[in-house]
Design a protein around this nucleic acid. Sequence first.
DNA 1: AGAGTGGCTTTGTGGTGGAAAGTATGCGGC
DNA 2: GCCGCATACTTTCCACCACAAAGCCACTCT
Lengths: 129, 129
Amino acid sequence: MNDNLPDEGRYAYEGLDRVLHEKARLGIVTSLAARADGLLFTDLKSLCNLTDGNLSRHLTVLQEAGIVEIHKGYRGRRPQTLCRLSDEGKKRYLDYIAVLESVLEDAVEASKLAKKVRSKVLPEGFSPA
Amino acid sequence: MNDNLPDEGRYAYEGLDRVLHEKARLGIVTSLAARADGLLFTDLKSLCNLTDGNLSRHLTVLQEAGIVEIHKGYRGRRPQTLCRLSDEGKKRYLDYIAVLESVLEDAVEASKLAKKVRSKVLPEGFSPA
DNA sequence: AGAGTGGCTTTGTGGTGGAAAGTATGCGGC
DNA sequence: GCCGCATACTTTCCACCACAAAGCCACTCT
């Protein structure tokens, strides 16, 4: 096939960071993005409707990816974990969001085109099995 | 904790359909959304920069989920597979996109708030480990 | 002191994305 | 006619990972 299609890879969305492109983590990071002071483990848990185990696991992943900073401390004698977006994390989040925006643009364009009536004609030379 | 936070579950994004919320499949479906007449296997392959095996698997998933219709035919003697978004698929795609939009809104709001200087003060009662 | 709760971490597992390998057919050269 | 290479997929395999369940520790209440 013609490799020089202008549209080659048009919908590949390579910039969609795997670490961020994940329901739960997307929620976590988005909620963190809004609060420069960070959020507590328990707040995140209820904001994102996650179980303890789940949140813990995702936070570890995000931390290892350098996206969040995790500060373990105490409130009185009880452990209290504070999570913040790192600068690096903020950067990557913004990049990710930019790609999402382009996905959305594609989607909008698509639904415009989709208004056209679907032709009943199959591509030339095509014959059903 | 107070369960009646107005923000409970605010960032849970429950509507983010797992089948669609996937780099590769998101690309596939988005490209299909624009063309009511569908696309051929090979076109999808190059549009989304997928390997044959990958594309094949994702198409099966999408078909089993009732999102795409797959028509296997022949062009001359060579097999030729045509893929189209089903009506159901179009519906689910639009729902998904709507959720994506709200993620984006959250992100925009977040970056507005993030303009505020990050306070150096840790939450009350918090002491580093 | 024993039951209950809050705040996490660790373990177990079923599911899945993607690479690699496999199948089947067609075409061109010699 | 068959050898090699290409097209058009499908199937197999594996490493990873999201999520649930169980575990852990400290505090509180009674």
